[in-house]
Simulated scan of single mutants.
Amino acid sequence: MASETRCTSCCSPSRAAKASRTGLPSAGPVPEGKVNHTIVNIPGGRGLIGTKTPRIENDGEGPLRPTRISPFRMTATTITNAEFAKFIAATGHTTEAETFGWSFVFWQQVPDAIGLTRGVAGVEWWRRVDGAIWSAPNGPGSEGACLPDNPVVHVSWNDAKAYAAWVGGRLPSEAEWEHAARGGQGDVAFPWGDDEPDDEAFTPCNIWQGDFPHFNTAADGYQTTAPAKSFEPNAYGLFNLVGNVWEWTADPFRVKSLKRSVQARLHAARGFKVSKGGSFLCHRSYCYRYRIAARSGTSPDSSTTHQGFRVVWSD
């Protein structure tokens, strides 16, 4: 089994090579009627970032610290395939997955017709699939998996930033994302509070249930992505802030630590961006990052079947 070079955490593999960025469309309001986002007003004031009870300390989850947040608006869901399709049709934007000619697909999603694929060293469940893009998320012939109401995936940070600019918005900061996810509840672990999801009775979000990466019972109802507007929203009316797909933020991935191992990892992750929220592949035994304070760093040109984004606008 051939393997790609592993250069980041097991949550979201990153490309080892770099490609030139596609040009960003001019920022500005979307022509009326082009995209009808559901937008939520997020109050400003005293916010929190981090946690006093970090679970993965080397990721920089703690400490809990206050921060001042200005009011802003946020899409109630991650951007959907239908919304992203309008962006592509209007701008002709070429995603970085299309530019590279391939993207990462979770092994269970790879169609049999694809044949042999290469994996990421140490996390071989991530497969490099030629032709995997947002409109054919599992590779050529999988256009039927691009459901209009599901989160768009295979979008890099650069792609997400381009869409946000097109609608006159931007990607949220990590502090804004956490403030929105908390829904005014303070230092809670999840958007609904502190109750821990399990593999059977309590499934408030779309994560993995069972034995990762071999068998997913789909007790929450989904083997892969759920519709962007599913499960109960948090107190601010935001859907799927944890689980389903990772969400890009505007911020660089940094960790304050004196540990040599952490510093070495950060050196290899120069230029990486913070993602929040975890995905449908997260499980407490493997990737306990479906918590508000959890975070991951990924190269801005990377794309996978579990990476999406939402947009914010400053008031």
Rank of each mutant, 00 (worst) to 15 (best):
67 T>W: 00
215 F>S: 12
33 G>P: 10
218 A>M: 01
102 W>S: 11
112 D>Y: 01
251 D>T: 10
292 I>P: 03
283 H>V: 09
106 F>D: 05
176 E>Y: 03
62 G>T: 04
250 A>D: 15
2 A>G: 07
77 T>S: 13
53 T>E: 13
253 F>L: 07
202 F>V: 06
232 E>K: 02
191 P>V: 06
151 P>Y: 01
234 N>C: 11
165 A>W: 04
147 L>T: 08
281 L>I: 08
215 F>N: 09
237 G>C: 11
28 G>T: 05
227 P>K: 08
39 I>K: 06
276 K>H: 08
29 P>C: 00
198 D>Q: 12
223 Q>C: 08
26 S>K: 11
121 A>R: 13
313 W>M: 09
283 H>S: 15
125 W>P: 03
71 P>W: 12
218 A>P: 00
254 R>V: 15
128 R>T: 14
47 G>Q: 05
101 G>S: 11
237 G>S: 09
259 K>R: 15
119 G>Y: 05
201 A>R: 14
69 I>Y: 02
134 W>I: 07
73 R>D: 05
289 R>W: 01
187 D>V: 06
275 S>D: 02
136 A>R: 09
60 G>C: 03
186 G>R: 04
256 K>Y: 07
277 G>A: 02
249 T>N: 10
174 E>I: 08
258 L>S: 14
19 A>C: 09
287 C>H: 12
85 A>D: 15
56 I>S: 10
135 S>P: 01
230 S>V: 06
147 L>K: 15
203 T>F: 05
93 H>A: 07
45 G>A: 00
262 V>D: 13
225 T>R: 04
59 D>S: 05
12 S>A: 14
8 T>P: 01
76 A>R: 08
82 A>Y: 02
74 M>V: 10
